[in-house]
Design a protein around this nucleic acid. Structure first.
Length: 595
RNA sequence: GGGGAUGUAGCUCAAUUGGUUAGAGUGCCGGCCUGUCACGCCGGAGGUUGCGGGUUCAAGUCCCGUCAUCCUCGCCA
């Protein structure tokens, strides 16, 4: 624009105060609420910074039609309000703008929903009109919190001499782990890139290169089904450092989290964070991401169960399985209906049923009561640490199933019974010493629990493969897994041996990971790192259960973008260029749906 | 891939056992109003009950299929 600009703002809609009274200002913003009193007309003008009331008298308003969400430029004097008219709920409530001229920069169609905070609109509609959804002050506040949080973190890493380095988004497909998003190559007919599930190998190679301390705010892609806390593309704070062991990684992260919480939120986080071996986490909480804000730990009742007359329990012990329980203090007041609901929860996670007992010296009540005659009841109560009036829940079966059932029940009960006490906002926990390998349920072969580059506790890999412990660790916050990391393998011979255990042939090792093995052969430093899911921690610090509100343009549960309608069909010539032919059936006309 | 929930006016919801012209709040439009800030008062418009089929004298309601959204199990090294 070469002519003098008539509409550019002098202030935002959130900054004018009593001290500005008398100034003539120009504001730009959107029409939020309108209150027409005939001879005088009030409009709340909104932008990212706040709301300012503008006042139009009849002569100014003449011929001007303001609709909700019109984008305006208004010019006028800042005037103070009479004491009776001050709006104490708004930072700008002491003043208003006596408008002398209005310019409509862009008029708005009637929005499908009102742009206000406390409006419970269907997610479907919100996502389709995300540009309007993101105009709501709460949504803008969430995005601004995300920006502040990540900004504080970046500053904390840079202050610790970490170097921010970008790694490729077009990279190499690997069959291990999650399903890859694939990108066909035009230049190399029949070949494909993959979008990274994480920058794992690149960051290790940066360590071999001697970059020593790396971090990145990295977008990662996994073509798996969604959840409230999982999107197919998500953001990690990825880092790696050289010449370190576990304690070094923990210490630097603890410092970064303390700084970040302080800078972004004004919250003092307690550090160092407690550490707990995986085996202890499973035994005590039945979970590798325990919420340590409340107790109700799992109790092994094998000593009682093996001798009891309840065949399900004694049989489980004989078969090499476990019988464990939970005690809900005062839970005997629960109704049969509530207990049945708990059983349904247990069944979701593979339980055949849920044995329960309202504990009492005299034998108690519930399905287990008839096995609690004479001294059986007091003995069971002693093992459980239960009192009269408590409700005890039991699971029997193989170890992993029992852990899972009771671990999930514990989390469920923690929410249902509101067991998290006051002042327990941020309870971080490092979970360490994960198992190195687990059996694949289908093929029976070994797979890495973390990833194949994780160092073992014992470089010699001596002993039974199934009992080997790794140097992997997770950071857990209030029962959410925030991220994982490990000390890596920096020795080529050990890396090859791990691939061998995983059943990857020497030939496949060369094809898939040859560049890493090569790198490890050129003086790789001991190194380790960690990656934190930023969507999750940003959601968690806002008290949200879903990460959808902290992602500007999230996908729906079917991995679609409701606003731009991705994914979508492409032109035949585009497929031809990349040497791709679709095997998808043509969409049937009858299946078309205009919803 | 499996299970559950939901789908009615622009939005949020209601509609008895299958029964008259599918209602309310809100928003929107028009009128009135000079101190509102969830303004108020009066009036008005607004519906393919997601889509397709079936049962029935009669379907928002029952049945089958399908689509979409949310939650969830599997899956997510």
């Amino acid at each position: 624009m070469t002519a003098e600009c008539t509409w550019r703002r002098t202030h935002t809609c959130g900054e004018l105060r009593a001290e500005h009274v008398g100034q003539v200002v120009t504001l730009n913003g959107w029409v939020s609420a309108r209150r027409d009193h005939g001879g005088i007309y009030f409009v709340d003008l909104r932008d990212r910074y706040g709301l300012t009331q503008i006042v139009l008298t009849t002569s100014v308003a003449e011929g001007i039609k303001l609709s909700p969400e019109d984008c305006l430029s208004v010019r006028g004097a800042v005037v103070s309000r009479d004491a009776a008219n001050v709006n104490t709920d708004r930072p700008t409530g002491e003043i208003e703008i006596a408008v002398s001229s209005v310019e409509t920069l862009s008029s708005a169609k009637l929005p499908p929903f009102e742009i206000i905070d406390d409006l419970d609109t269907a997610v479907e509609t919100r996502l389709q009109y995300r540009f309007l959804d993101l105009r709501r002050p709460t949504m803008q506040a969430k995005l601004m919190h995300r920006s502040r949080f990540i900004g504080a973190m970046r500053k904390a890493w840079l202050a610790r001499d970490f170097c921010e380095i970008e790694t490729p988004v077009l990279t190499k497909a690997t069959p291990e782990g999650a399903r890859d998003y694939l990108v066909p190559s035009r230049v190399h007919a029949g070949k494909f890139y993959a979008l990274p599930q994480s920058p794992q190998i690149f960051k290790q190679i940066l360590m071999v290169s001697g970059m020593d301390r790396y971090f990145q705010v990295a977008r990662c892609f996994r073509d798996e089904d969604l959840r409230a806390d999982r999107q197919p593309e998500f953001t990690q704070l990825d880092m790696e450092m050289s010449f370190v062991e576990e304690d070094d990684v923990f210490a630097v992260w603890e410092g970064v989290m303390v700084d970040t919480f302080r800078d972004a939120m004004g919250v003092e986080v307690e550090a160092p964070f407690p550490r707990m071996p995986w085996a202890e986490a499973m035994a005590r909480f039945g979970s590798d991401k325990p919420d340590i804000r409340f107790g109700m730990e799992l109790i092994d009742v094998a000593a009682w169960a093996k001798e009891c007359e309840f065949k399900v329990f004694s049989g489980a012990i004989e078969a090499g399985g476990r019988v464990m329980g939970l005690v809900i203090e005062g839970g005997a007041e629960m109704t049969r209906k509530e207990i049945n609901a708990l059983e349904e929860v247990a069944k979701t996670y593979g339980a055949k049923g849920l044995a329960w007992w309202k504990s009492a010296e005299g034998g108690g009540a519930g399905p287990l009561a008839r096995f609690c005659a004479d001294d059986a009841a007091p003995r069971l109560m002693e093992i459980l640490g239960a009192k009269e009036g408590d409700l005890c829940l039991f699971a029997a079966g193989n170890q992993s199933l029992v852990w899972r059932i009771l671990g999930e029940l514990r989390v469920h009960l923690g929410k249902k019974l509101d067991l998290v006490g006051e002042g327990q906002d941020w309870r971080f926990l490092w979970v360490t010493r994960f198992p190195m390998f687990e059996r694949d349920a289908e093929s029976g072969s070994w797979t890495s629990l973390h990833h194949p580059f994780t160092a073992p506790q014992d470089w010699d890999l001596a002993g039974d493969v199934g009992t080997l412990e790794s140097r992997a660790y997770d950071l857990v916050l209030n029962g959410w897994e925030l991220g994982s990391g490990s000390i890596r393998i920096h020795r080529q011979d050990v890396q090859s041996r791990i691939f061998e255990i995983l059943g990857i042939s020497p030939e496949d090792q060369r094809n898939k990971f040859g560049f890493l093995l090569d790198a490890l052969a050129y003086g790789a430093p001991p190194h380790g790192g960690f990656a934190m899911g930023l969507d999750r921690i940003v959601a968690l610090t806002l008290g949200l259960d879903s990460i959808r509100d902290v992602v500007a343009f999230p996908k729906t549960a079917s991995a679609a973008d409701a606003m731009c309608d991705a994914p979508s069909a492409v032109e035949a010539f585009q497929l031809a260029e990349i040497h791709v032919a679709s095997t998808a059936p043509a969409p049937a006309a009858a299946a078309q749906d205009d919803a």
